[in-house]
Design a protein around this nucleic acid. Structure first.
Lengths: 211, 211
DNA sequence: TCTTTGAGCGTACATCTGTGCGCTATTTTG
DNA sequence: CAAAATAGCGCACAGATGTACGCTCAAAGA
């Protein structure tokens, strides 16, 4: 790669880093300003356009990166659990560690999932879907769950874990503990219920899985 | 009430209505502008301060109103189901009708739940908690569920329904149908699982999660 | 009746925003 | 080595925003 392209890449990275860095509990993508991001990245506002067409384009890149980070982490967590122990438990732990060490990345996904940009919402939804799919495959392979049930179950699991993560952000250690215990109970409910439905045969047929 | 107070109330209402009116899929509370709201309400920007200290105060009022609306609706839905039919099914239907006819109020709650203002987040969380509590009481009374299980179950139900509602916003009729069917399956899982846990009698053991 | 109150207005200002334009300096290309 | 491409810059501008200040004038209160 040429010297030119290298430098450009470095600046692009600086922009992304600056943007990530400005995220916080009280600051979301939608109220980052191009000028401020450029300032922190050490370039002139107008130079921003050499790298992104828009703040929206910058944001989409951030969503993609954040989603990728989380997904890779979770995959690792699942592998780690592969040898011994419950996968679900390991996944929760991994997820909670992620939230704890990258709260702003998590907030990013959380917020843009219901944000004002359709493109962002779609991007986050896509990330979460990857997520559900991987867990669903895993459940099918590991517990022989019927595909439709596996998907519904995975979706419910992910939804609850995600939601708990969101709530955890504003809680102290002790409250988090109570939240985590409740979450475990809820996931257990789903596991038991799914098992029961699977056993009860093919009564509830679910054909319409999303593509 | 004096003529003066009446007029003041009317203007205040106009501000709130204008604000609600400007909410949409691509516009959230945090990017409403004081000036624009005042404009639509038909008053000068500076007159805004006669009614609210802040846009934040306006927003909090909106969250409270929105939460109240939803809660009243759900209570009615539950009553309606009281005579005949599953409560859960009736609640879902009521909820989905709400989303369909007040999408922006729902979006308001959805967004501010993870928004950039701690006060907003707390307000929405409080609304949802009311919600869970009412459902939990109902489940205890109706199915004799143990309090802790009833709460965990209610929380899970509300989380899943809320989340489905959020997803439904971006879907067409057919996709919504599939989503609703999946949601029913998930709620069934929880119901069955909760029942099983109640039967098994003891405190939930963390070690028994399926692999 | 006279006085006090306060909702609403218009003006004004400082601040911030995104972005168009043209220039420079350096790398890349031919 | 000359020419083309381009990352980055400074300047400039138009528009929007929140809000301070002081006024008016109708209602409320004495």
């Amino acid at each position: 790669m040429g010297i030119r392209a290298q430098q450009k890449e470095r600046t692009r990275r600086a922009l992304l880093d600056a943007a990530f860095n400005q995220l916080s509990a009280e600051r979301s993508i939608s109220n980052l300003s191009l000028r401020e991001v450029a300032r922190e990245a050490g370039i002139a506002p107008t130079s921003f356009y050499r790298h992104f067409k828009d703040m929206e384009e910058l944001g989409l890149t951030m969503v993609d990166e954040g989603g990728l980070t989380l997904r890779q982490l979770m995959r690792k967590g699942r592998q780690r659990a592969e040898e011994g122990g419950s996968v679900i438990r390991a996944s929760i732990e991994t997820f909670m560690e992620f939230i704890d060490s990258n709260p702003n990345v998590f907030r990013l996904l959380l917020r843009e999932r219901s944000g004002t940009s359709a493109a962002f919402r779609a991007a986050v939804t896509r990330e979460i879907r990857h997520f559900i799919d991987e867990l669903s495959d895993y459940l099918q392979a590991k517990t022989g769950r019927r595909p439709d049930l596996a998907y519904a179950q995975s979706e419910a699991l992910v939804t609850l874990v995600f939601s708990s993560g969101a709530e955890a952000l504003d809680l102290n250690k002790k409250e988090r503990q109570a939240l985590a215990e409740r979450l475990i109970v809820q996931l257990k409910m789903i596991a038991k219920g799914s098992e029961a439905l699977q056993r009860s045969g093919r009564e509830p047929e679910l054909e319409n899985l999303p593509k």
